[in-house]
Simulated scan of single mutants.
Amino acid sequence: MTIQLPLSQTNSEIVYPDSDGQPMADNTIQFRWITVIHYNLAWLFANNAEVFVAGDLLWYPVENNRKLRQAPDVMVVFGVPKGDRGSYQQWKENNIAPQVVFEILSPGNTPKEMERKLLFYDRYEVEEYYLYDPQKNSLTGWFRSELFLERIDEINGFVSPRLGIRFELTAETLMLYRPDEQPFTDYIEVQQQLEVAENRAIIAEEQLQQERQEKEIAQERAKRLEQLLREAGIDPESNG
């Protein structure tokens, strides 16, 4: 008699969670910096279909290991298409690791945690890593040499090789500049700029419309005057 054993469960699909249960930010300052960097980089590469920019997205570098993961505050990946993802599973993305990552420090981040993140980014071949502490207005950067991430000695004025953006530390805050030297702006500032531009466009259109109307009125008056002169037996085109 042959007994059929149940099929093995070892080949069941591994689930890679889309959330680690942690909040995106611990405070409004950290959240604002995350969104400013994310949206400005998204705008910067909006016309490049092969640059993916994400914020607070879980990155799994190794297949079949769902515990090995990290969620950079902002990450940029060159060579993969834009699009929505629940998580960044590297083996599904031509095994391309994020080349640039940003972390915004909050009071809840411990030195051990940040050391683990640095080791993770170093091990899984991040090319550029930037860590900003808005409370202390302190910026630290690392750039990959041939084998590992090395700390950037002079970060003030440094230009990211991958992004082309420039970092400037003032006495009060960090300033980021696009390759065209335009500063990064937050959503409210962009919205205000759009509203100002829209209002200017409306005013310009109203002025143009008024000029058109005044021109039409002047033309109508000229035609009426010409008609009255002709009715009076005067040729308006005569020089006499």
Rank of each mutant, 00 (worst) to 15 (best):
Q9H: 08
V15S: 10
Y16W: 09
P17R: 02
P17G: 07
D18Q: 12
D20R: 03
P23V: 02
M24I: 15
A25S: 15
Q30E: 06
F31Q: 12
R32K: 07
R32P: 06
L41E: 02
W43E: 15
F45M: 01
A46H: 14
N65T: 04
D73H: 07
M75L: 08
G79I: 03
K82V: 09
D84P: 06
S87H: 05
S87A: 13
Q90H: 08
W91N: 03
K92I: 08
K92A: 11
Q99P: 05
F102R: 02
E103F: 00
L105I: 05
S106C: 05
G108H: 12
K112P: 07
E113V: 06
K117Q: 05
V126F: 04
P134W: 03
L139E: 00
G141S: 01
S145F: 11
G157W: 06
T170Y: 08
T173K: 10
Y177A: 11
Y177C: 11
P179K: 01
Q182Y: 13
T185C: 11
E189P: 03
Q191I: 10
Q193E: 15
L194R: 14
V196N: 11
A197W: 11
A201E: 07
I202R: 07
I203H: 08
A204S: 04
Q207T: 15
R212S: 13
A222V: 09
K223M: 14
L229C: 09
E231F: 11
A232C: 14
P236C: 08
S238N: 12
